[in-house]
Design a protein around this nucleic acid. Sequence first.
DNA 1: CAGCATCCCTCCGGATACTG
DNA 2: CAGTATCCGGAGGGATGCTG
Lengths: 136, 136
Amino acid sequence: MAKKQLDIKAQADLTRAWAEADYAGVCPVRQTLDSVGDKWTVLVVLRLGVEKQRFLQLLRAVDGISQRMLTVTLRKLERDGLVRRTVLDTRPPTVEYELTVLGNSLLKPIGMLAEWAIENQPAMDAMRAAYDEGKN
Amino acid sequence: MAKKQLDIKAQADLTRAWAEADYAGVCPVRQTLDSVGDKWTVLVVLRLGVEKQRFLQLLRAVDGISQRMLTVTLRKLERDGLVRRTVLDTRPPTVEYELTVLGNSLLKPIGMLAEWAIENQPAMDAMRAAYDEGKN
DNA sequence: CAGCATCCCTCCGGATACTG
DNA sequence: CAGTATCCGGAGGGATGCTG
């Protein structure tokens, strides 16, 4: 109980700090959301969090992603320093992708988000269904 | 050290569980990302995590959001059961928005994401600049 | 105050075809 | 294998104007 109170307080402090801070320009949360909040980035990072992967492995592992979007996503992640791209000198070429230290640090928050999603998506579905029902 | 090892192992288990699970259809993480991963949802929830807010308060608090998108975002959050909308019987009307229990549960993961953003956005900016420099 | 309606334009991202 | 190039439809979302 005391533990939970502390958690709640810590959470309140965190959100308050975020809300009150003046970032003299662009809010870093908005900025990060622009980088990481697109359709595929989180899923690719989560997958790379499991283990180092090659291009086609990722293409098969991340369900529904197109070749084009995987390329675009990986390039952006590489540019942002979250993923390291290694070309092995073989024929045909082999390319490996793995998270950098920075990329790994992102794994914790988005891992929690994934955990939340798995746990609460059914509840959201139910709430949505109930809401729509009430509108009829 | 032993503590850190445990954290890493827990993280690995989490991501592996996510990756290996077969969701017989739509991945709940993708689904949640579709709901929550748009341009404004996270910022609105974070703000509501600080305290209950009225419409115009939110409009001013969430930097850059348009009236239209605030309305759309709040409707979606209400529909998904993350936000409760209360109309007070005054003239002119007063409407209050607050997180539900479900909405509050989302606050933890996205709060961590916000924390990560504030802490690591500068690093991402630096990596990006260095990457672009190397391409010239 | 708290919104809904409409217009309109950007750009995300899917499909497809081609290369080192 | 691991990409690049091009085309293009449709959704996301900003601006503006109007109401209970």
